[in-house]
Design a protein around this nucleic acid. Structure first.
Lengths: 158, 158
DNA sequence: GGGAATCAGGACCTCTCCGGTCCTGTTTTC
DNA sequence: GAAAACAGGACCGGAGAGGTCCTGATTCCC
C-alpha cells in the first residue's frame, strides 16, 4: 500500500529526537527509552544510520550516537534513501532499469515524473523542520481509535 | 522500498492500454494477450477496477471491459487509490488516525505534507497522459520545489 | 430455449520479506 | 582488566503480496 517500512518510520522518529538537541550524544538504551521504541530495533536502525553517514558513533563506556550534520542539512530524502534504498515508487527507477517488460510496456518512461515528484517532496523537508515542536493542538487526545490497517501492538503493553 | 504493488503496476498497464482506444470493449483474454500479462491476474485486477468504478463491464458472449470515463478524466491518483487504498506513505493518514504512539510521537502531524505531496503528484497526471506515445520532453513536474511550508490543499478527492 | 462465452466473487496456496530478537565480537573508559 | 558501549551478523515467525483455480450468474446466438 505504498508504505514506508516500520524501520524507516522508527528511524525518522529517532533522528527527529536527536535533532531536537543536536549537540547531545545519546546511547541506544537512552534513545529507546526516550522514544518508547524497542531497544533491539533502535540499536539495529542506529547502525544502519551510521553506515549511511547520517549519524556519528562513539564506542566505549561514554559512547553513543549523534547527528553527523546539523538537522538543517539533512533532508527527509536522505533519511528515507538511507533506510529504504533509492526513492522510487516503481521498479522502473531510471531509463536503464532493464525491466523485462520494457519493450512492450506502454507506460515505459512515464513513471519518472511521479518518482521525481516524490523525491522532490522529500528533499524539500529538512530534519530540522520535522523536529519543530508542534503547535499545541488539544484535539490530539484520541487514544482509543486506531486506523483499520494499523496492527502493530507496539509500545503500549505495559 | 516504497513500492506500489505489482497488482497496481499491472492495473496501470491495463488501463493505459485501454486508454489508447477508449471506445473499444475488450475482454480479459484479449487484454492479457495484448499486454503480455498473465490472464488470471488480469482478470482479478479488472474485477477490482470495475468495483472501484474505473471500468464498465458487460457480461455475455460479446462481453468485455471498457473505461467508464474518458482517459482525460481519470487521474493516476484515482487509479492508485482504487488498487492500493488511500494514498499515504505512513500509517498516519490524517489527524484523526489515532496512532497509539501519537501522544509521544515527535513527528506527529509532520507526515501529512509528504503524503499530500505524493497525492498531488499522482492527481496531476491523467490516464490520457500516461497513454501518450512517448515524446521528447514532457513538461516539468511543478509539484516539488515550492516553499516548504506552503502546502496547497489537494483538490482531487471525490 | 439451450449452450457457449463471458464476467463475478470467492477460496486457496506459496513464498518473500518485514519486524523483531539474540549472540558474539571489538573498542573505549575508568 | 572489567564494564559499558557499538559492530555485525545469524536467525525466526508471521503477514501479506503474487498467483491459481473453482463455482456461480449473466448475456448472446443459433
Amino acid at each position: 500500500m505504498i508504505r514506508i517500512t516500520k524501520q524507516t518510520d522508527y528511524g525518522i522518529v529517532l533522528l527527529t529526537h536527536l535533532a531536537a538537541a543536536p549537540e547531545r550524544q545519546v546511547n541506544a538504551p537512552e534513545l529507546a527509552g526516550e522514544t518508547h521504541l524497542p531497544l533491539p530495533m533502535v540499536s539495529k536502525i542506529l547502525k544502519v544510520l551510521v553506515r549511511e553517514g547520517l549519524l556519528d558513533s562513539h564506542r566505549g563506556v561514554k559512547g553513543g550516537y549523534s547527528l553527523s550534520r546539523s538537522p538543517e542539512e539533512i533532508s527527509m530524502a536522505e533519511v528515507v534513501a538511507a533506510l529504504e534504498g533509492p526513492i522510487a515508487i516503481t521498479e522502473c527507477i531510471d531509463d536503464q532499469s532493464g525491466c523485462s517488460h520494457e519493450p512492450l510496456c506502454p507506460v515505459r518512461g512515464r513513471w519518472h515524473r511521479i518518482n521525481a515528484a516524490l523525491r522532490e517532496a522529500l528533499a524539500g523537508i529538512s530534519l530540522a523542520e520535522m523536529a519543530e515542536t508542534p503547535r499545541p493542538e488539544p484535539k490530539l487526545v484520541t487514544l482509543g481509535r486506531r486506523p483499520a490497517l494499523a496492527v502493530a501492538p507496539l509500545g503500549q503493553e505495559h
